[in-house]
Design a protein around this nucleic acid. Structure first.
Lengths: 189, 189
DNA sequence: AGCAAATTTGAGTATATATTCAGATTTGCC
DNA sequence: GGCAAATCTGAATATATACTCAAATTTGCT
């Protein structure tokens, strides 16, 4: 943990290097050597500030997720539209990052139990978030039903992001917006 | 390529070892050493029959995909129900494999262009397959619309498989079957 | 100015990986 | 049985990885 200015500065350099590497050469290319080279530091400095390589990566990914939250203060004001548009932005403008996120979800979830718990917790929060928005727009719906719809909707969005990660031409927005209509229709019936 | 009985036998042993390792210890645990140890052979024998480790893995994954096709002879008789049930079986009974498949899609697609093309081709075929089934059940729908619906549906299914890969308790079947209803509703409107 | 803690360096460790290869052995064909 | 090709072995190669550590230097506080 950095205390002096010098430490804070190299910490910032490390995070910036990690951020750029993740989006330019992907998860596999983001090695410790690459991070240190790009940050212009030696490995020892890295480990003086971070306990592990993954720590730096997780911080970068988390920061990028937070920056795309339509309601960061949790005031319960975000609409489904906003949530979906935020997701589209994330998957489209920042497709390399959604690929990294999928990578962590798929591989990290399997091997490392800490990461697995973290991803599941984050997901549960998102389901609640989407569930709230759905329930707010469809007051007749039970809470349980709304969260179940949220699960399916999130699955669709994640599937679309996965599709996009494989094919940068794929029109995520169009399909994502349609999946929104689907909920409204279902809610009516 | 094996020509003698001995070669065919070790080839089978290698594939079996790879298959079991993939489902027991995942992608990361399926190292060359692990494969050879489990198959009871030396590394040299492996490379006498396979050009690369990935070759063995791809063969195993492909075989497992083919074995779950409801209409292997492509007679155009598979219904949406059947396709979705087959997917549920794949994701649920064989969740470790769908995790491997996601892994290849997410990581392999990025680095290796051959794998990327292969995955995209396989996906295009599946979209056509699902699109056919949708069009067959909803004759009023345009071909284009059917394939677009198929894309979204497949995204949902893949998202559900991803969800399941992270949490073995997740009820894929329930959500997958609901996503089927969604299409019918949409088609009516 | 001085001192303790923070930071950086530079060289190292430990380990794991996929892959190769020459030589010994086995196999299947004639 | 003999011979060429296939197969197997066992050791070695090359390379990359994350991470460590003692010693030198810098920083911020008093």
């Amino acid at each position: 943990m950095a205390r002096y200015k010098a430490g804070l500065k190299t910490e910032a350099k490390i995070l910036e290097a990690t951020r750029h590497l993740l989006s330019e050469v992907g998860f596999e290319g983001t090695t410790l050597k690459a991070i240190c080279d790009r940050a212009g530091i030696r490995a020892g400095s890295f480990y003086n500030l971070f306990g592990t390589k993954e720590e730096a990566i997780i911080r970068v990914v988390r920061e990028s997720l937070v920056s795309l939250d339509p309601d960061p203060d949790r005031e319960g004001r975000d609409t489904l539209d906003e949530l979906i548009e935020a997701f589209i932005t994330f998957a489209e403008a920042n497709s390399s990052f959604s690929r990294i996120y999928l990578h962590i979800a798929v591989t990290g979830a399997m091997t490392d139990d800490v990461i697995r718990q973290r991803v599941l917790h984050h997901h549960a929060e998102r389901v609640r978030r989407f569930g709230d928005a759905i329930a707010r727009e469809h007051p007749s719906m039970t809470r349980e039903h709304a969260e179940s719809e949220a699960e399916t909707l999130l699955a669709t969005l994640h599937g679309l992001a996965l599709r996009r990660a494989m094919d940068p031409e794929f029109p995520v927005a169009e399909h994502a917006r349609r999946s929104l209509l689907i909920i409204q229709v279902t809610a009516g019936g």
